[in-house]
Write a protein that binds this DNA or RNA. Sequence first.
DNA 1: TAAAATATGAAATAAAATTGCATAAACAGT
DNA 2: ACTGTTTATGCAATTTTATTTCATATTTTA
Lengths: 155, 155
Amino acid sequence: MELLDSLDHKILEILQLNNLTSQREIGNKIGLSAPAVQRRITRMRELGVIKKDIAVLNPEHLGQLITIVVQVEMEADKVEMVTKTKRKFEQTPQVQQCYYVTGEADFMLIVVVSNMKEYEKLTHELFFNNPGIQRFKSSICMDIVKSGLALPVPK
Amino acid sequence: MELLDSLDHKILEILQLNNLTSQREIGNKIGLSAPAVQRRITRMRELGVIKKDIAVLNPEHLGQLITIVVQVEMEADKVEMVTKTKRKFEQTPQVQQCYYVTGEADFMLIVVVSNMKEYEKLTHELFFNNPGIQRFKSSICMDIVKSGLALPVPK
DNA sequence: TAAAATATGAAATAAAATTGCATAAACAGT
DNA sequence: ACTGTTTATGCAATTTTATTTCATATTTTA
């Protein structure tokens, strides 16, 4: 059984805002006992509904980090090339996020580096060294207006 | 005192991967007692170095969610307009992320909606209703190759 | 060098998570 | 409708974890 009911949804809603909320407190809010909450959470972790639990850091406290949005165009979308490129992006720690998208660009990347030298080096590794990539466009981020991973949870 | 030392960095490194790691375990890895770890974590929360603690959900388990990367161009960047627009994007729950960037586009948004109807409505609210916005380009996400918020932590 | 501020570990305490168990609710097959 | 089965629940007990206290050590400041 894979389905989530409305209580599960309420739990997810709470945890994606603050996963340090105690089971007792969650239980109070949604009308369940702490153990019941705990079993549901465990189950959702096993199902993969909850992918991970993380602390979100403030980039402003970690030196002068540079965030860059990169649009990447591939030559002709050969499936193999795309797969390989995806894997490369995945494995690169500076690539915080990678979306494979429709439209002019094929990939949208969010990249975080410590300085421009590092970015230049990275472009060689990721783009110039990849014959499948036609061009890429870098937009420097001046302000991270909003940053999160929260998803809409069914009511 | 605001500075972080190398032990703090190690703690951050661990917590941004898994913030459910126990203090004892963190202590073992970095050579501190559990209480020492706990005090450092508390301090970093107070300083805002740790912004929040969240569960990351798997979009594939929450219905057919649609992720869209949107490039937004403003008319002439009037400061007021930009500020107001930022605030609007911030407050919109479907806008998961918003970057104010250099280059052709002024904003890059990551938007998550439940269906296209919702997106159409959202474009009216966010873009057509905003006279400061010249045009916007939507790229539908076919694959979220990588998704995270981990930052490079000084060694 | 003395005084003050800061960080630490060990031990004690408090809080939270987890497990065991009996019960109730939902379900499937007859 | 009846019965056996599965599944979810709450309570109480247990275990683990987080937090506080306190004495000591280390660093900083005057």
